[in-house]
């Protein structure tokens, strides 16, 4: 396993794409979070919002580069035919796939930590100018900690979900279409649905709206799911995609 990991890490660091994608993830997350924090306006009787969730809203955008990296790690090799070289070098396919998943996890988690902490810091700085410093606006530290670690885990899980989908689909453009559709379309679909019951069901089921409940620090009762359970739904999606991808890689001709 260690040689396979060493090989995958070498692959990632010897081309420019992954580095740029991770930089893009950090930039997109921090930029959107900062922009959202600066346009928010507080009414006279208080802000009423969730400052931590607001500071982390950039994750909605930052997940796209993470998803693209997850896709490219495997579908890029199917596109060029290099997957044959990879599987010739590491013929135990589950090992080869697991090495990709572990390397991706490490890289995305590291970049996501920077992105999430940067967003929180930017949000804090900007929101303090908007009067969020008052005590009622500050959630408990443990809740902020949950939102922070949860967001980092969420971004990592999205990377893994994309890896699994790409292992099934194998074409990079189609995989990206599928994953971005899955992430962004389902919440929109929930808006289009008139029946509140079904709306809530869909929000509990969709990987993005369920997973991002982990960012909430106030008004927890209105969430479709409890925060960790929501992240668990996203983890379930990622696990299902990885298992499907792993099984297909094992059984299908390369």
């Amino acid at each position: 396993m260690r040689p396979a990991l060493h090989a995958e890490w070498t692959k990632l660091r010897t081309v420019a794409g992954p580095g740029w994608l991770m930089l893009g993830m950090i930039a997109a997350t921090v930029a959107l979070s900062a922009a959202a924090a600066s346009v928010v306006t507080c009414a006279a009787d208080g802000c009423g919002g969730d400052p931590t969730k607001l500071s982390l809203v950039g994750v909605v955008l930052g997940q796209a580069p993470a998803a693209v990296l997850g896709v490219l790690v495997i579908s890029g090799e199917y596109g060029s035919g290099m997957i044959h070289t990879t599987l010739t070098a590491v013929p135990h396919r589950v090992t080869a796939f697991a090495a990709k998943a572990i390397t991706l996890t490490g890289v995305v988690a590291a970049a996501a930590t920077i992105a999430v902490l940067g967003s929180l810091l930017a949000g804090r700085l900007i929101l303090s100018h908007h009067g969020f410093t008052a005590a009622p606006g500050r959630p408990a530290l443990s809740l902020t900690l949950r939102a922070t670690t949860g967001s980092i885990l969420y971004l990592t899980l999205i990377g893994l979900l994309s890896l699994g989908i790409a292992a099934v689909v194998r074409n990079s453009a189609t995989s990206i279409g599928v994953i971005l559709g899955l992430l962004y379309l389902l919440p929109l679909l929930a808006q289009a649905i008139g029946d509140p019951h079904w709306q809530r069901r869909l929000e509990q089921f969709a990987p993005m709206s369920a997973g991002l409940t982990v960012q909430a620090t106030t008004d927890l009762g209105s969430l479709p799911l409890s925060p960790w359970a929501g992240l668990g739904v996203t983890a379930g999606w990622a696990a299902a995609a990885l298992v499907a991808g792993g099984l297909l890689i094992r059984t299908r001709d390369a």
């Binding site: 692959k11 010897t14 035919g81 010739t88």
Partner: peptide, 12 residues
């Protein structure tokens, strides 16, 4: 083994 010499990442 050498199967397909073109199976490379072009920017590596």
């Amino acid at each position: 083994a050498l199967l397909d010499a073109a199976a490379l990442h072009p920017s590596r």
